[in-house]
Amino acid sequence: MRQVTRRLILAPLILWATSTLSFLLLSLAPGGLESSLLHGLGLQPTPETIASLRSQFGLDRPLLERYGEWLVSALRLEFGRSYITGEPIGADFARLMPATVELAAAALALSLAVSIPVGMVAGMRVGGSLDLASRLLAIGVTALPGFWLGYLLMYGFSVWLDLLPLSGRGSWAHLVLPAVTLAAGQTALFARLLRNSVVGELRQPYVRFARARGLRRRHLFGRHVLRNAGLPLWSALGVAVGGLLSGAVVVETVFAWPGMGRYFLSAILTRDLPVVQAYVCCVAAIVVATNLIADIVHAALDPRIVTQAAP
């Protein structure tokens, strides 16, 4: 369990470092409030408006006092107020979070549903037609800009075939194209990972023994090989969640999906620094938590990790 314990100790440290770093970046960013006025609200900042806004957002108080306040509000998931709307950021996040979670979860489920059978079969028949086809597809998919793939799918399925809605969020049909776009890269990655892992697993002595014993193929693959070969997927899951959240910024923009990614992007473009700061901390918390869960599950599934000494 040393690996997991180490992670447990490290997790709050990472979160604290992130919140401090993003606080410092916000406080030290050149002319944050001024450029936010200019880009976000189209106002020409005068010394008076800046001074009044600075006191309104408490920016005229000492750095340490603001830092303490920021830490407390971040712990309460409040994160202060937006420069642009003046609304509390935590409330905005709570409103937008379900849309992003829905999109990311759908993409993750889709990529697992496709990559597990493909990776298994490709690994069982190395050099077979599915192996070659999935390899070619992976080369193609990993080279596709996500935003471009989104528009291509939109053109094909919404404009040309007129099967699915163009953009926005609503019915299940609205979810299909954004989820496919977001899942594409991840699916290719998972399938290759699983394929290589199956190839390695099939060389293990226990597989030969099970075959010699006359174990049925389905039983061998379903119970033994997949269980072991699937382990690297667990470790990849933590990274995948981060990738999905990054991809969501692009996909939500393309499909006008009302989620956190689009909110984050508009905050960057309007230089709404408190929102950027809050988003960074939120994502850090999500990623740290997923990694932790993935590690614990991994350790539970693979006793070798527990007995091995941590490096």
Partner: peptide, 21 residues
Amino acid sequence: DFVLAFPTLLFAFAIVGFLGP
């Protein structure tokens, strides 16, 4: 380790957020 603990692209977006596009 600290840098790698983050989703690369989001971290990069955030840096552009602080520095400006």
